[in-house]
Design a protein around this nucleic acid. Structure first.
Lengths: 205, 205, 205, 205
DNA sequence: ATCTAAGCGAGACGGTACGTCACGTCTTGGG
DNA sequence: CCCAAGACGTGACGTACCGTCTCGCTTAGAT
């Protein structure tokens, strides 16, 4: 069989040099002035690139900013594997909190909230920064279930939102700090539950 | 006599009429095209008002849009008081979810993301739409503690974020529906906890 | 020998098919939207030709438009030779007027105005559409002199401009119709002169 | 009666300062690079004016260039009245030729030929630079008729085009110089006629 | 029967200018 | 003193073409 699903593009190929210059420029502007500073004109002129070239790669400035954030991410510093899935979850939540507490984190959140929700690009963006981590969390959660630390009768989607939701909440509302001690507490409260233990007999409801 | 209590200002009685015309126009534009459609020019012209008049009340278009959202909120349909604080919480979460699931909910999220976080106006906005509800939740939580349904040894701020964070999360990410069954599950999962009961009764592995 | 002044071109020869496709496309665009519509991109895409191919033949879009106009001209419908040079002149002026009155006439004027005046291409263009006719006129004028219908003491260049200038004038200014009756009158006025006859026969004031 | 056909404009009045700055900038650019150099961006930036302000006054760059040319015209240097209408005509033709021989003259011609012919603006432009002079010429021509120097049986419109057409012809075609000796010869040839005097008896035909 | 160099279509490149929109400020005259 | 109206300078928008440059593929004359 031939791999003819990539129909051999005609014409001059896109310049990856231009692409990376654009992303670098966008990253700089993002760092200097936040998402609002990522204008097409600014990006193009700083990248030494024509405006149409930017539009050739991305449909609008939001997409450029998102791409810059996604591409600009530092490589994952893999830490040694924790002993249990619960500990791994705790570690992951701490890492996420640390990253989101940075200016870049604010930018990510801003862009997520401002984006269209239906656009392909914004879906990819949310997936990259949040849902992928949440999916990792799902793996850890299932592992924790197998390890006997988590109840088997719960709705995993709800459980995941219970863990990751509070992070975003603080990030966007800014009503309280977003740090490791917070995520640790979120995890422990979520695990233990808020309800007072009435008695070992009471089945709940 | 009340006829002479406003003798000195020379041209001002129009003010409240202009103000509400502006807000009505902003609300309409919001409904038609989202926050991006709330432009100063659009608002002013639709309200039949000069641009400087708009600037007299609000510093920029974000503020106008926020004010429109805040003012435009339907009056609270007070439902009969639930029997317990827990049930009241459940009811409140349902109500919030219902509102967030509407287009207005998306607009609120967008505005929160776009706003400065430090501005007085945006603080008021976040407070109006989110933190005020969270504060109501704190009251209910304390009541629930007194009623003996909630543990006394928990961090209330964390507990509150555990309840409200997931709603916000789904609002922003749109990865799953934001409805009453979700908030019910959030509440029950948060109360019961995710951890498997390792009670003293538990006999074996 | 003249065969070796073309130094034996290597490689693939130019495609005359491409050339004529380009000119046809340019002619169509000219007809549809005037000279402004003859863009390199438009011509190339309509001709199914790459842009560099167009540039291989002509230096810029003006040249393409000019070439299209020159090539697209209908073949000269040779009418039977008139009895005298004066009548031939009258016929020629009528023909020119007829052509200038068409949309193509306006396009020619536009191109002449837009062109550099010094460029080789624009010289050829002006020559093709105007000066060549004027040169034909010079022949007829000289013939008419020989036939005894035209004075021998006049400046032929001035005389020619006297005949062809008015046509061009109406073409450019559009202040009055450009038709056969006009050119006939131009010719007769030019021949007879505007001045009142102050002949020796004239008896009194 | 009230003069209510000028319905008293509301709002801030147009800044004539901006207007004249725009025209000055356009005039400079015209002098430096011809009509092609009169770009909206260039004009606006050189005039220290926003682009929208330029568009508020004129619909496109052609109009700006035309307005600049019309406004920038040096005041008419009135020369002493000649003894006869014929001499006045000769003087006028010389003056026109002198002006059109300048770079500005080329620009005027270029703009005339490039313009739409139907636009109100371009009509005004042609009128200002050419048809107004031609109208002056009509007055002189009628005066010359009264003075007995010009035939009474001619078509004045044709006669006028016979005088002014050759000027434009040389201006645009550049095939021969456009100077006073040319216009003098045009006038004398037009007056005397090109035809050979067959005999004093022959009435013409 | 190759070889090989130019032409071919396509289309991305860095640019420039377009004409529009909205910003937030300033300037009118009227009430 | 506020009001509506609207012009102001600013600056970004997204588009259209410019003329140049790479691609990989013909194609036809020279070898």
């Amino acid at each position: 069989m031939k791999s003819d699903d990539a129909p051999r593009p005609r014409g001059r190929p896109r310049s990856t040099k231009a692409r990376s210059a654009i992303l670098r420029a966008a990253r700089e502007l993002l760092a200097e002035g936040g998402p609002a500073a990522v204008t097409m004109e600014g990006v193009a002129s700083r990248a030494g690139v024509g405006k149409p070239t930017v539009y050739r790669w991305w449909p609008d400035r939001h997409a450029v900013a998102m791409a810059a954030l996604m591409e600009g991410e530092a490589p994952q510093t893999t830490r040694r594997a924790p002993r249990s899935a619960i500990l791994a979850l705790r570690q992951q939540l701490r890492t996420i909190a640390e990253r989101f507490a940075s200016p870049t984190g604010r930018h990510v959140a801003t862009m997520i909230a401002a984006s269209d929700l239906e656009t392909e690009f914004s879906k990819a963006f949310r997936n990259h920064f949040v849902l992928a981590r949440r999916a990792e969390g799902r793996v850890l959660l299932e592992q924790a279930i197998r390890e006997g630390d988590i109840r088997t009768d719960l709705d995993a989607e709800v459980a995941l939102d219970l863990l990751y939701g509070p992070l975003f909440f603080r990030l966007l509302m800014g009503h309280a700090p977003l740090d490791a001690s917070f995520t640790d507490e979120v995890l422990s409260h979520a695990l233990q539950g808020l309800a007072r233990r009435k008695s070992s007999i009471r089945s709940g409801g």
